[in-house]
Every structure is written in structure tokens, then in C-alpha cells.
Design a protein around this nucleic acid. Structure first.
Lengths: 129, 129
DNA sequence: ATGGACCTTCCAGTACAGGGGAAGGTCAAG
DNA sequence: CTTGACCTTCCCCTGTACTGGAAGGTCCAT
């Protein structure tokens, strides 16, 4: 399987595949005599795992950690659980921050509905912010 | 006022002040004969506006738009309202995405509580992701 | 005159996940 | 024989808001 076919099959780009290899997420594939990358079909499931990891909000570096453990012959379950915990905590934090920001912005926005440039003092940039 | 004093007064760094000047958020100040930046105290309120804009989730580029309008002698109210609208829509979108992600992750996490490496098939990387 | 604190410019790098494009090699079809 | 599609490596670019550091100039006190 050449890189273009793999990219098409996986729904990604050749650039991305070379990038993943460079980052250690994909093992270096065999090469044809001409030097072309020659993939075995089972990298597709690996790519699928990478995508699921990303969909779960993990960074490529974190996905790589899991793959490394797995490649080492161990079960990454515990590590995965910790990663999910970490990510979950981050998300909760982001959710709280965004909610506060949304409420602040909504207030500002409400105040800005009656646009009254005349009430902007020359000393200030904007009444609303 | 030299750049160090201004930075201290505004609670920021000299690096940031030069960066803002470079990005067009602060006007180029006068210079002392030695070439040192010599600020007028009124930039403090401008810096304050920048900080409020950032706190409202606007990017520096957006804050600059508002300042440019203001510097042009116009009232930026309408533009500010539009920016707030835009930002608000983005935040709502992020909130929805994060909520979905959190729920997905929570499910994965729950499934991962009983860590059972034995149930990981050798063909898959991880039962949980 | 010398040390230290301050200032100047410019260059480079951070994190993230790739994308763009150049210069050149390879392969099958017409 | 040439065209076009594919492949290779290489390096730089994206966006965001700065931060670090080098090399050198200035000011004030000692």
C-alpha cells in the first residue's frame, strides 16, 4: 500500500502520515526498491486509534504515550484511565471558565444593545468594554 | 515615563509593551535624546482597555480594530457590539462541543474504572478508547 | 572608571497539528 | 519519448500572545 492509497483509505493526507511517522506515532514502513513507503494494511487500525484518541481530546503526544506502552507489550489501560482523568479535569475547568466568560459577555452585550455613541466620553475608548 | 515604569504601573512587562507597539496597539511614544521610550501617563488607560478587551475574550487583533476606529475619531460602539456577538457565538459553540466531549469522556472513564488488561485483545490498542 | 540597572534592536522560540511548495526521482500509459 | 500522476526529502509557514537572550548603548552612584 503506497502512502497515497493509505491516506485515501484513512481519510487523511500524505502530509499527515509522514508527520505521524516523524512524531513516532506510526512505525517506519518498509520501502519499495524505489524508496516508496509500502504500508501493511494493519496500520489502518492504528490510524483509527489515533483518531479516536484525538476525538477524545487527547493530544498526539498523549496518544503516542499509549501507543508506546502498547508497543512495549503492556496493557495501557491504567495509563489511559489517568489520561482521561486529566483531560476530564481540564475540560471541566474550561467549561467553568467559558461559562463565566459567556455570562460576562452577555451582560456587556445587553448593555450594548442601545448603541449610543453620544454617551461615549472622549476620554474612554468604549462604554461597553 | 520610561518603559520599565510603565510596565510596573500597568502590571505587565517591557517585552509586552514593545510587542503591543509593534502590533499597532500602542502608538509609538516620544523618545528621550538617548533613544529611550518616553510615555505619557494616558497610555495607562489604553492598556487598561486592552486588558478589558482580552478579559472579554477578544483577540489583540480585535482590540486593535476597536482602537483604530476610536483613534479615527469615530465611536466604535456598533463594531464592539458585533465583536461581542461574534465572540459570544464562538463561546456557545465551544461550550456545546466541550459538553459533548465531557459526556463522551465520562462514559469512557466509567468503563475504564475496572481496569482489566486481560480483556484487551492483542489486535486492539485499548479497550477504552 | 566601573559596576549595576536600565534601555535599545533584532533574532529565535514556545505549543499544536499539520499545510505549502520546491527540486527532483519513478512508473505506467499513450 | 514524453506526459502526468505519484513519490521522495527539505525547509518554511500558519495563528496566538508573548518570552528569552544576545550584543550593545545610557545613566547614576560610588
Amino acid at each position: 500500500m503506497r502512502i497515497g492509497e493509505l491516506a485515501a483509505a484513512a481519510g487523511t493526507s500524505t502530509k499527515t502520515l509522514r508527520f505521524y511517522e516523524d512524531q513516532g506515532l506510526l512505525p517506519a514502513p518498509d520501502r519499495t526498491p524505489a524508496g516508496y513507503r509500502d504500508y501493511r494494511p494493519d496500520v489502518l487500525s492504528r490510524l483509527d486509534f489515533i483518531r479516536r484518541g484525538q476525538a477524545a481530546g487527547l493530544t498526539l503526544a498523549q496518544v503516542k504515550q499509549v501507543l508506546d506502552i502498547r508497543d512495549d507489550g503492556q496493557a495501557p489501560c491504567a495509563h489511559v484511565r489517568d489520561l482521561l482523568d486529566e483531560r476530564l479535569a481540564e475540560i471541566e475547568y474550561q467549561l467553568r471558565s467559558l461559562t463565566v466568560l459567556r455570562d460576562t459577555l452577555t451582560e456587556l452585550r445587553e448593555a450594548a444593545i442601545p448603541v449610543r455613541p453620544d454617551t461615549c466620553g472622549p476620554d474612554q475608548v468604549c462604554r461597553y468594554v
